[in-house]
Design a protein around this nucleic acid. Sequence first.
DNA 1: CTTGACCCTGTAGTGACTACAGGGTGCATG
DNA 2: CATGCACCCTGTAGTCACTACAGGGTCAAG
Lengths: 133, 133
Amino acid sequence: MTIGSLAEATQTRVETVRWYEKVGLLPPPARSSGNYRLYGPEHLRRLSFIRRGRALGFTVEQIRDLLALADDRDRSCGEVDTIARAHLADVERKLADLTRLASELREVIGQCGCGSVADCRIIEALSPLGEPA
Amino acid sequence: MTIGSLAEATQTRVETVRWYEKVGLLPPPARSSGNYRLYGPEHLRRLSFIRRGRALGFTVEQIRDLLALADDRDRSCGEVDTIARAHLADVERKLADLTRLASELREVIGQCGCGSVADCRIIEALSPLGEPA
DNA sequence: CTTGACCCTGTAGTGACTACAGGGTGCATG
DNA sequence: CATGCACCCTGTAGTCACTACAGGGTCAAG
């Protein structure tokens, strides 16, 4: 299959597929006589893995590690578990941050009576030192 | 005050202060005879505003807009409200995404018995097309 | 007069792509 | 056979919000 069909099959942009190749996530495929990339089912599997990992928020480096581990089928699954748990911890940290952020924003917005900027509660909330200028 | 004290007072890196100046968020301050930047209380207020905005997750462009609005004290607060609400909507979208992500990750991790990679549930969950290689 | 902390400019790197510019290929239609 | 068009190629630069130098200058204390 050409890069276009592979991209379509995996909901990826063509440029992104080429970029995965450049950074070594996707092995260079065979080329046609006209120098087009020609992919097989193995490439489709690997790219699907990458995209699913990205959708789950793994970094490209984490996916690189997971791919290396997945290729070594006899190895214990412990390292995979470690990467996934570290990532979950990271997601949970971001979740906590965003939750705090959202409630702070809601509070700031709730106070705004939408008068003039001079007594805007939002602007005031952003100016921790008191009155501006 | 020098750039170092300003940075310390606002929990900002010196390089970041210079960067805010370069992108036009912070006006260029006076210079000493030795070409050092010399900041006054207005710079401190403005940088505090910027940092608080960043801590609330506003983009630099949003802060640029908010600063322009804040400088125009007679204008109605409506545009400020619009920016803040748009940002809150954005944060809430990310929050929903992350929540879904975290539960998906927890599910994947919970299934892992930590045997060999060949029957690792995590790797399998990342390979939506079935068995690898 | 030297040491060390601070400051200066300018450039390049980060992550994960995205967006061209400037070309070549392949196939169907006139 | 020529032409048009969709697709492909390489390579470079841009995104966001900084961060990290390299290679120098300034200033106060000892």
